[in-house]
Design a protein around this nucleic acid. Structure first.
Lengths: 129, 129
DNA sequence: TATTGTTATACTCTATAACTATA
DNA sequence: TATAGTTATAGAGTATAACAATA
């Protein structure tokens, strides 16, 4: 099981690389696209990473023109991050490619096997805690 | 499913860190312990990493005293890597801790659920290709 | 020529510690 | 004081390119 997880994870990761942005940056971008403007703390909590690490990841996004910072009008300490048009485009493209690859793989399985994977996914999330 | 894989993989990885060696180096060490002396090419193939990357990883192991290089008597180009006593100790300890953690988590599931995970593992390996 | 391995360089990702600004 | 965020520094992991040695 550990082997299976490791292999599939690496495969997902390599399938995802977009040439311009790395894995962590793309994850942030897709989170921003999906859940709207998020603060640094929200992003670092979601990714289970320290705020210092996340600050550097979003720096790569903002300097690359994929996301922008806007101060939170309700709390001067907070900063809200949003994707730019280009950021949204990259996020959508990445998701599409990733889903496309997985779909093509799942298509080689039987309905029962896909059902097994779906049940296992829920269990894995539970185990990961 | 992508989320489940990512979370569980990160959990495995964080569960594994030994303070002295990182994830990739520990993987190599457990491979060496399990499959005996291996060449650089064999190690890089197994880990699906370039030879240049693997060379640096084993450098961390040899300079740390966890593995040693011995020239292949049958082929002057090849170098065989073997774990030292300390390397074996670390590898065994790491495996034990990792298995222990997973076992404790699996113990919270039903027999049916564990069976689902076992079947899913085989499917995931197949998907990863 | 092809294979094996190494080194140099660069980038992503992550963590910790020290710091500023706001609540 | 506590919270939000940033920056500096360090280290692991990876890739590519250039290289040496052996087959």
């Amino acid at each position: 099981m550990r082997t299976a997880i490791a292999r599939l994870y690496r495969r997902f990761r390599s399938e995802r690389q977009s040439g311009e942005l790395g894995d962590a940056a793309l994850s942030v971008l897709t989170s921003l696209r999906k859940h709207g403007p998020l603060s640094l703390t929200e992003l670092s909590d979601h990714a289970r990473v320290t705020p210092g690490s996340m600050s550097q990841t979003v720096n790569r996004l903002t300097t690359g023109g994929y996301a922008v910072r806007t101060p939170d009008p309700a709390d001067g300490r907070r900063v809200l991050f949003s994707p730019t048009v280009e950021g949204r485009r990259i996020a959508a493209e990445t998701l599409e490619r990733s889903v496309g690859w997985l779909d093509s793989r799942l298509a080689t399985l039987t309905e029962d096997e896909r059902e097994t994977l779906a049940r296992a996914s829920a269990l894995m999330v539970r185990i990961a805690g």
